Computed example of a mutant assay.
Amino acid sequence: MSKRREELRKKVARGQARARGEPVRGPSTNPATNLIMANAIIRTGSILFRKAVEKRMLKDRYGKETAKSIVENQSMGSTLLSLGMSRIATKSSTGAIAVGGGMLAKTLYDRRQAKKSRAKGDAQLLEDAAEGSGEG
C-alpha cells in the first residue's frame, strides 16, 4: 500500500480527514454513491456501443437480422476471452504489447490461411446465430 494511502487511512480513522466544505457534485450527496453510479453508466454505455459496432461490422456481410443474432448469441467463452484480453491490455504497457502482438499474429495467420479461415469463421458465426434463434 502506498504511503499516501496509508496516511489517509490513519487520518480517516482519527476523524481528521476533512472535506473542504464544498458541495458534492452529482445526484447524491455521498461521493462514493456518485462514483458507483458513474461507473455503472459508463459500463452500460460501453456495452451498448460495443454491441452496436459489432452489429455494424457484421451487417453488410450477413444481413441485419443474422448480424443481430450473432452478436446477441455469443458464447460465454468468447465473452470471457474478450474481457480477459481487455483487462490484461489495460493493466500495463507490457500487457497491451502482448495482447496486441497476439492479435496481430492471429490476423497474419488468418490472412495466410485466407480461404480456410474465412469459411471456418463464417461457419462458426452462423452456427452460433442459429443456436440462438432456434433454427438449428
Rank of each mutant, 00 (worst) to 15 (best):
44 T>F: 04
76 M>K: 13
17 A>H: 15
116 K>V: 01
110 D>H: 04
57 M>H: 01
102 G>E: 04
78 S>N: 08
37 M>N: 03
27 P>M: 10
121 G>F: 06
1 M>H: 11
127 E>C: 09
112 R>I: 10
77 G>Q: 04
96 A>G: 06
102 G>I: 04
60 D>A: 08
78 S>G: 10
36 I>T: 06
48 L>Y: 11
8 L>Y: 14
39 N>H: 07
124 Q>W: 07
12 V>H: 03
128 D>A: 08
31 P>H: 13
130 A>L: 06
113 Q>D: 09
111 R>M: 05
128 D>P: 00
120 K>H: 12
48 L>E: 12
54 E>M: 13
69 S>V: 03
47 I>H: 11
76 M>F: 13
70 I>H: 00
67 A>Y: 01
27 P>V: 02
39 N>T: 06
102 G>Q: 02
46 S>K: 03
44 T>D: 08
12 V>Y: 08
52 A>L: 15
54 E>K: 10
112 R>V: 06
128 D>M: 04
131 E>Y: 10
134 G>W: 13
107 T>M: 04
115 K>W: 10
73 N>A: 13
114 A>G: 02
134 G>I: 13
32 A>W: 04
33 T>R: 11
71 V>A: 00
110 D>L: 00
30 N>A: 15
136 G>M: 09
48 L>M: 14
55 K>S: 02
53 V>H: 06
19 A>R: 12
101 G>A: 07
62 Y>K: 01
136 G>R: 13
78 S>V: 07
135 E>W: 08
86 S>A: 13
59 K>T: 01
72 E>C: 10
123 A>F: 03
115 K>C: 03
38 A>I: 09
45 G>N: 09
21 G>S: 15
